[in-house]
Amino acid sequence: MSLPKPAMRGLLGKRLRFHLPIACGLALVAAASFKFTVTEPRKQAYANFYKRYDSMKEFNATREAGVFESVRPAGK
């Protein structure tokens, strides 16, 4: 009694027909979950921040702290 020969002809094609749709489906699920759990909340957080952000107030606070060397604090 001898062992049967392994089916090598067309093995890659058979395995790809099975695994490629699964891999594509998992990639789509991962991309969609990343989009809705990471990027959308991040975009919303940036939008909320810039709705109430006052750049002149930030500039004046930074200038008063003495961070800028070329801009003198007000009143000096």
Score class of each variant (00 low, 15 high):
1 M>E: 06
4 P>R: 00
4 P>E: 02
5 K>Q: 09
6 P>H: 02
7 A>M: 02
8 M>R: 04
9 R>V: 09
10 G>F: 02
10 G>D: 04
11 L>H: 01
12 L>S: 01
13 G>Q: 12
17 R>E: 12
19 H>S: 04
20 L>F: 10
21 P>T: 05
21 P>S: 09
21 P>W: 04
21 P>M: 07
23 A>R: 04
25 G>K: 06
29 V>N: 03
29 V>M: 13
29 V>I: 15
30 A>Y: 06
31 A>E: 05
31 A>S: 05
33 S>H: 07
36 F>L: 11
37 T>W: 10
37 T>L: 14
38 V>P: 00
43 K>S: 14
44 Q>N: 15
45 A>V: 08
47 A>M: 04
48 N>V: 08
49 F>N: 07
51 K>P: 00
51 K>V: 09
52 R>M: 02
53 Y>M: 12
54 D>V: 05
54 D>Q: 11
55 S>I: 12
55 S>V: 13
55 S>L: 07
56 M>W: 06
56 M>T: 14
59 F>D: 01
60 N>G: 00
61 A>R: 13
62 T>C: 08
63 R>G: 01
66 G>E: 09
67 V>L: 07
67 V>T: 13
67 V>K: 11
68 F>G: 00
68 F>I: 02
69 E>N: 10
70 S>V: 01
70 S>G: 02
71 V>E: 11
71 V>R: 08
72 R>S: 10
72 R>L: 08
73 P>F: 12
73 P>W: 13
73 P>M: 04
74 A>V: 11
76 K>Q: 14
